[in-house]
């Protein structure tokens, strides 16, 4: 299977005046269609910077990021879901989801776009709230709308920067289940999407991920990779789950 994302020897240094801060150094990995890949590491090690570089929001100093899907007919390579939803408050849920489709770089006919938005509303269970504005939604609903907005441009990979950190534990668990369901539905619909998720929470990583990449301290490189071969839905009280969780925690803490 060809990767949807290939990162090779990625390096990034921030320069502030005369101060130089090397954030990433020689980072290489692939992400495959339909895979949930979690990125973990200590605070400030460069996880969010990595995601922003893949999303095209930060420049690359050296190395390369390639998303083969991006070259195919203007299809979006990556779309990002931010830590807080970052929905446009002046747009309804429906208009937020269709935002990316209305830009000049998207060659999506109106009827196709409308159908896609309707399907996504259905997928994230927000159809009854399509005319609502973000201020009228709960935190979980906002994040679901943000996920639908990212999915609308049919990206090969969705980047999620701690998307559940601001939510209460119950909503968080609900959304975690939602993510695996969305991934499975997208694959079943013929648009397999990889999910690259940054999290601080080892339990969340093991609950969701097919693979967990643990980054070292700055300048971050890959410190360890753990394959999680547990069937979904996963139980956080399973012995195997707990073993992997401890292993991840140990790798992050060192």
């Amino acid at each position: 299977m060809d990767p949807v994302l290939t990162v090779r020897d990625l390096a990034k240094t921030f320069v502030e005046g005369e101060q130089e801060c090397s954030v990433l150094q020689g980072l290489s990995f692939d992400a495959f269609p339909g895979e949930i890949l979690c990125i973990m590491g200590t605070s400030g090690c460069g996880k969010s910077t990595l995601l922003r570089m893949i999303a095209g929001l930060e420049t690359i100093d050296s190395g390369s990021i390639s998303m083969p899907g991006q070259q195919e007919g203007g299809k979006a390579g990556a779309a990002m879901v931010f830590q807080d939803d970052a929905l446009f408050p002046w747009l309804s849920v429906c208009d937020n989801i269709s935002y990316g489709l209305k830009l000049g770089n998207q060659d999506v006919p109106g009827d196709v776009a409308s159908k896609r938005v309707a399907d996504l509303l259905e997928l994230v269970r927000l159809t009854p709230f399509s005319t609502y504005y973000p201020y009228q939604l709960s935190g979980g609903m906002k994040q679901r709308a943000a996920v639908a907005r990212a999915l609308a441009v049919q990206p090969g990979i969705i980047l999620m920067d701690e998307p559940f950190s601001a939510l209460d534990p119950f909503t968080r668990r609900e959304l975690q289940d939602e993510i695996t369901r969305i991934r499975d539905t997208a694959s079943a619909d013929g648009h397999p999407v990889a999910i690259l998720l940054v999290t601080h929470n080892p339990e969340e990583a093991v609950y969701l991920a097919d693979r967990i990449i643990v980054l070292s301290d700055r300048p971050a490189a890959i410190h360890g990779v753990i394959d999680v071969r547990l069937p979904h839905p996963r139980s956080i009280s399973d012995r195997e789950f707990l073993v992997i969780r401890e292993k991840v925690t140990g790798l992050v803490k060192r």
Partner: peptide, 9 residues
């Protein structure tokens, strides 16, 4: 950032 991410001009 959202607009940039969607490659808006």
């Amino acid at each position: 950032d959202v607009a940039r991410m969607f490659r808006a001009t």
